[in-house]
Design a protein around this nucleic acid. Structure first.
Lengths: 336, 336
DNA sequence: TAAAGATACGAAAACGATTAAGTAATAAAA
DNA sequence: TTTTATTACTTAATCGTTTTCGTATCTTTA
């Protein structure tokens, strides 16, 4: 590896001069700068990030904390898409992305915070984790810049999908199609779910809809089997709904199967909607009516906010960015 | 941040002693070691990876090169799953994962190799990229340990899904169900596709199947729209097939839609199969018959091989690891 | 013409760790 | 008892940068 020393030698200047030339300091003569830069390029020089980080205490490295049942949130369409957009944006600003080790069964492992310090990470994006995990809390309480996705912590930057508007839009749409008996199979008890539920009931009230308790049941996100069970349970009611809201697109597909298995047709016999707007929604038949979350904006905004927090901590306002989704009209809701 | 200096001061020893104690060198007294370790823990010490990397030239950091239409391969189910398993395994061995910046439109950007050197990456996993990209070739030709997924380079470690056996199993299965008129909508011209095609024709010959040229057409991986087009083209043939093999599960869903739109039923009127075995395959109705690629093994083996290459370059055999997939029998192929 | 300022560079310390080489002090061998 | 090993440390150099503080040379200004 060619270092500044080599360039200094080749150019007959000191290492300090090389450093300053490459960093465009103003106390180096113009022709010297040019000469040094050219030699650097010729010799194939690239800085050593470790040395630089050691000296400047800046790693230009951002941590990613994604955990799900499969250890990382990578196979989770929605979060993978947010991460993707996040990655593109931080890279534009010269940062790299490193995974925070979340392999809890390792010997000698560090906590998330310890790991972040070890790698000199300048900030962390947290998504798709159990937010009550003590290690997550340790991270959130630290002085490290942090942005969370779809979860609110006091005094911490967060980027949220607008679940309130999402559910409201969905319910309004279903109502406008003429439905009055609407069930909601919601996900497990998380802040996202709670927000959606609140919005669901509030919107129902606005619309003067009567929602029997049996119409609102807990399902599981992204679980086909369990969703089929719950769907059947709802359909077995003496007075079944004419439309079901599922926790997400994937479980909606599960619901679809349960419905088809009963010989019912979507949307003639029963209407359904999903949530997320992942690719599968538009690929199945009938196309699923759903809320497409704006993962691209979410990732970008999260990145911008985090970088701002890193680079100008004083002047950056801690806020909760809420990103609206968009209703995607498929063919899964009938007009009544 | 507390450094070795602080611990040395607190323990009344030199920094060197601290370092050796923490790294368990044998020339430090047992009680001194214990004392130092305890103080380190109490003071909340964690090593500084930059300093260590600078000095030892070992970063314990591995690069990930994943590119797809959405900039990274993250939203690609199959590859995300491989990466996930890869990540778990490298973390078990104390390595971290950093993305290689693949934002081609950045000013001042480095090539993949330059970026790897800059970050001191010790090895790279390459997947889901255009393998004829000059930058990829530069990386592959370098002295950096590299493992590729689903692509072969001379003298380079590769982990491949067994596409030959996969297609063969699939064709045998379809044949055993009584089908004789089998079409193959294959993906774009890549090495994976070529392998599958060779296997398709060879197996057809084994089975004495006659495959008219019109039955083998180029589709696109993971493209719903285009697949629908091609599917219709095949179904419009004067003598249409009774079963269609699609390039992957996602495009199979596209094909399904085209078939349904014609008023045909799967599998009564026409049978179909996919490839990949991603989650959607088992969630749609009818369940898709497909080849589930063993992404978990692929990721794990890729990690083990790469680490072996890093830690004992001399004794590590460069080889092409081939991982078998498994036929998943759904309900999308009828018995004739 | 002397003092002050500007310009262009260099010397050296520092970041936090690792490690080869050296050195006391003690134990074992001659 | 002297020599040699062994043990348990320390010293100091080093990795590749950045940055503060000098300093020599040249240009202005009084």
């Amino acid at each position: 590896m060619v270092s500044m020393k080599d360039i200094a030698l080749a150019c007959n200047v000191s290492v300090a001069t090389v450093s300053k030339a490459l960093n465009n300091h103003k106390d180096i003569g113009e022709e010297t700068k040019v000469r040094i830069r050219e030699t650097a390029k010729e010799m194939g020089y690239f800085p050593n990030s470790s040395a630089r980080a050691l000296r400047t205490n800046r790693s230009y490295n951002i941590g990613v904390l994604f955990v799900d049942e499969a250890q990382s949130g990578l196979t989770h369409d929605y979060f993978a898409s947010v991460l993707d957009s996040f990655k593109v944006t931080v890279e534009k600003h010269g940062y790299d992305l490193t995974f925070i080790n979340c392999n809890k069964d390792n010997k000698n492992r560090m906590s998330y915070l310890e790991h972040s310090r070890y790698r000199g990470l300048e900030g962390v994006i947290i998504a798709c984790v159990p937010f009550d995990d003590p290690e997550v809390l340790e991270l959130v309480k630290s002085d490290l810049p942090v942005v969370t996705i779809d979860h609110l912590f006091d005094n911490r930057m967060a980027v949220m999908s607008d679940n309130v508007k999402g559910i409201s839009d969905l319910l309004h749409y279903i109502y406008d199609q003429g439905h009055r008996k609407i069930a909601y199979i919601h996900g497990q008890n998380t802040s996202v779910t709670r927000n959606r539920l609140v919005s669901f009931y509030r919107t129902a009230e606005e619309l003067s809809l009567i929602i029997p308790d049996e119409y609102v049941v807990e399902g599981k996100y992204r679980e086909v089997k369990h969703t089929q069970l719950v769907t059947n349970q709802v359909l077995d009611l003496p007075d079944p709904p004419t439309c079901i809201i599922f926790p997400d697109d994937l479980s909606a597909v599960g619901g679809m199967n349960a419905i088809n298995a009963r010989g019912l047709n979507i949307p003639q016999d029963i209407s359904i909607v999903g949530y997320d707007g992942i690719s599968i929604a538009s690929r199945i038949e009938p196309k699923l009516t759903t809320i497409r979350q704006d993962t691209k904006s979410m990732g970008r905004r999260a990145a911008e906010k985090l970088i701002s927090l890193i680079e100008k901590p004083k002047s950056t306002l801690i806020e909760h960015v809420v990103i609206e989704g968009k209703l995607i009209e498929g063919k899964s809701v009938s007009k009544r």
